[in-house]
Simulated scan of single mutants.
Amino acid sequence: MQNVLATVANIINRINAALGKVVSYATIAMAIVMFGIVVLRYGFSLGWIAMQESVMYLHAAVFLLGSAFTYQQNAHVRVDVFYRQYSKRKQAMVNLLGSLVFMLPVSLYIGIICFDYVIDSWSLLEGSREPGGLPFVYVLKSFLLIFAISMVLQAISEIITNTLRLLGHISFSEDENALNAKQQEHI
């Protein structure tokens, strides 16, 4: 059973890592488009609403679609005043409780409350309210659902991983890469 759970956690981690890698390119694209906007506006007195909105879409993609990867890499914002001094076992307990009590319920709630919002947008194929804007507001709003789903999945992965650590099935010194390599041997 522990191998199945570890495999599930590994698959979730791979999905979110791939999503994080894809989204990292949006950061580069966002910088290039923003540079283009500035050059066109101040150098040639040209501007397009669609180009400006594309920066907003890319920004939303970076933050909403990259959040689960950030959480996976333990790079999210937290108050480390006490946490960093805890033993690895106590850190795993904090991570497990944080995932169970905060991350999973909040992510589920976000997914539930934004579902109708996104579906309504898709049913209208909602576009920009601005003349010349992008006609893909429904795609932008879909990032909310992808965010919620990826965060729920990553919370499940964290719950599995930290539970296995606390039960002694994964050593505390094992990092995620070692866990992934170990799971590949079992597959």
Score class of each variant (00 low, 15 high):
residue 1 M to D: 11
residue 1 M to Y: 07
residue 2 Q to K: 15
residue 3 N to Q: 10
residue 6 A to F: 11
residue 11 I to N: 14
residue 13 N to S: 13
residue 13 N to Y: 05
residue 13 N to F: 07
residue 17 A to S: 07
residue 19 L to T: 08
residue 21 K to P: 00
residue 23 V to G: 12
residue 25 Y to K: 05
residue 30 M to A: 15
residue 32 I to A: 14
residue 32 I to T: 09
residue 34 M to T: 15
residue 37 I to R: 01
residue 38 V to F: 06
residue 39 V to C: 02
residue 39 V to H: 03
residue 40 L to D: 15
residue 40 L to K: 13
residue 42 Y to D: 07
residue 43 G to L: 12
residue 47 G to V: 00
residue 50 A to I: 06
residue 50 A to E: 13
residue 51 M to N: 01
residue 52 Q to E: 12
residue 53 E to W: 10
residue 54 S to N: 05
residue 55 V to H: 06
residue 55 V to Q: 06
residue 55 V to A: 12
residue 57 Y to G: 01
residue 61 A to L: 03
residue 62 V to A: 06
residue 63 F to L: 11
residue 64 L to T: 03
residue 67 S to F: 15
residue 67 S to D: 03
residue 67 S to H: 09
residue 69 F to L: 05
residue 73 Q to H: 06
residue 76 H to R: 07
residue 78 R to C: 02
residue 83 Y to D: 03
residue 85 Q to G: 04
residue 86 Y to N: 05
residue 87 S to D: 07
residue 89 R to M: 04
residue 91 Q to A: 07
residue 92 A to R: 06
residue 93 M to D: 03
residue 98 G to S: 09
residue 99 S to P: 04
residue 100 L to H: 06
residue 100 L to A: 14
residue 104 L to N: 03
residue 104 L to W: 10
residue 105 P to M: 15
residue 105 P to F: 13
residue 106 V to M: 14
residue 107 S to L: 03
residue 109 Y to R: 01
residue 109 Y to P: 00
residue 112 I to P: 04
residue 112 I to S: 03
residue 113 I to L: 10
residue 113 I to E: 14
residue 115 F to H: 12
residue 115 F to Q: 05
residue 116 D to R: 10
residue 116 D to W: 12
residue 117 Y to C: 11
residue 121 S to H: 08
residue 121 S to M: 09
residue 122 W to E: 08
residue 122 W to N: 03
residue 123 S to D: 09
residue 127 G to Q: 14
residue 128 S to Y: 08
residue 132 G to D: 09
residue 134 L to F: 13
residue 135 P to Y: 02
residue 135 P to V: 09
residue 138 Y to W: 04
residue 139 V to G: 01
residue 139 V to R: 00
residue 142 S to K: 00
residue 142 S to E: 02
residue 145 L to F: 02
residue 146 I to H: 06
residue 148 A to K: 02
residue 148 A to R: 04
residue 150 S to E: 14
residue 150 S to V: 14
residue 150 S to W: 14
residue 151 M to C: 15
residue 151 M to P: 09
residue 152 V to E: 06
residue 155 A to T: 11
residue 155 A to C: 14
residue 156 I to D: 10
residue 157 S to T: 08
residue 159 I to N: 11
residue 160 I to W: 08
residue 161 T to L: 09
residue 163 T to P: 08
residue 164 L to P: 10
residue 165 R to N: 07
residue 165 R to A: 08
residue 167 L to Y: 06
residue 167 L to E: 15
residue 167 L to K: 13
residue 168 G to V: 06
residue 169 H to S: 08
residue 169 H to L: 06
residue 171 S to T: 14
residue 172 F to V: 00
residue 173 S to H: 05
residue 173 S to A: 11
residue 176 E to I: 14
residue 176 E to Y: 12
residue 180 N to Y: 05
residue 181 A to K: 13
residue 181 A to Q: 15
residue 183 Q to S: 12
residue 183 Q to W: 01
residue 184 Q to F: 01
residue 185 E to C: 00
